[in-house]
Simulated scan of single mutants.
Amino acid sequence: MTAPTTLHPAAAPVAPAAPTEVALKARGLSVVFGGLTAVDALDLDIRNHSIHAIIGPNGAGKTTAVNALSGFQAPTRGQVWIGTATRPRWSAHQMAQAGLARTFQNIRLFGGMTVLETVLVGAHKRFGSTLPALLWRSARARAEEQHEETRARELIRFVGLPDTAVLQPASSLSYGNQRRVEIARALMSSPAVLLLDEPLAGMNVSEKAEVSALIRAIRQQGTAVLLIEHDMDVIRSLAERVTVMHRGRKLTEGSAAEVLADQRVQDAYLGKVQ
């Protein structure tokens, strides 16, 4: 299976340049449901060209934090920046326009769409043609559609799917390959930041290795990756920086080796931290 040279996840590893800018930032981010504080004053910096993981025991607030970071949950307090852009309150659509894309813990595909059609959904912000031009199929609109279809096919190869999958119903693929379709759809918007909520859940060892290589390749192409993952071996091999959450709060942050050796982190996973 051959992919474009600039997109091939199996290419020789390239050490990323030292990140100096923040792709995604949160300050004082809090989410309160009734009397329950699910996320409490979270500060977070996701550097450009980096893989940053959020870990923590079940119920730590990880997915709620990612939902608030991506506009799917309105924070009760706090502020989020994408690059240098910020708003008092972001919608998911506004965040997508600003350069953030995500996948979800539970696969979300459109029932009857083919793999190609599903991936093309991610190109919505890239079309410059007006609605009348699209409806009347102007030369510019046709050229844009052809360009985006070519890019979608390249991304389908990039995530590791064969050309034969392009016209298959996305929902007919195996669980692991549906995950790949979701990642390709997210990449169609050319995001500066990609949020992956447990992208390796339910995969076997070889599938985890393949998708881990894909995540590294995404980073090498210049996209910052924020990853939620439970597999500590994956965290050790992928994440350059790790934030540990416990009961809605940031417990500690540092390299994977540092945080996984921290007694407080070990106690949190064993239920010993109050």
Rank of each mutant, 00 (worst) to 15 (best):
A213H: 09
V193M: 01
A224V: 05
M188C: 05
L187T: 10
S190G: 02
S190H: 05
L200H: 01
E210Y: 14
I215V: 15
V193A: 04
S206L: 04
Q220F: 12
R219I: 03
R216W: 10
G202A: 07
R185G: 00
A186Q: 03
K208F: 04
M203W: 09
E207W: 03
A209L: 12
V205D: 13
E207L: 03
L195Q: 01
L194C: 05
V205T: 14
P191K: 06
V205S: 14
I218Q: 15
G222Q: 10
A186M: 01
D197M: 04
I215S: 08
D197Q: 05
P199A: 00
L187F: 05
S190L: 00
Q220W: 11
A217L: 08
M203C: 10
R185N: 01
R185Y: 09
L196P: 07
R216T: 06
P191I: 01
I218C: 13
A213E: 09
V211T: 14
T223Q: 11
P191F: 08
E198C: 05
P199K: 00
P199T: 00
I183V: 11
V205E: 14
V205H: 11
M188P: 00
A184N: 09
D197L: 01
R216Q: 08
A209R: 15
L200K: 07
R219P: 15
A201W: 04
S212I: 06
L214G: 00
Q220K: 04
R185T: 01
Q220T: 15
E198P: 07
I183R: 01
S189E: 11
D197W: 08
R216Y: 04
G202K: 13
A201C: 12
E207G: 11
I183Y: 03
L196S: 05
M203V: 07
L187Y: 01
T223N: 13
I215P: 04
A224F: 13
G222K: 12
E182R: 12
E210M: 14
E198T: 10
L196H: 09
A224S: 10
L187M: 09
A224I: 04
E210L: 13
A224R: 13
R219G: 09
M203S: 13
V205N: 11
S190Y: 00
G222S: 11
E182S: 10
P199G: 00
L214T: 00
G222D: 11
P199M: 00
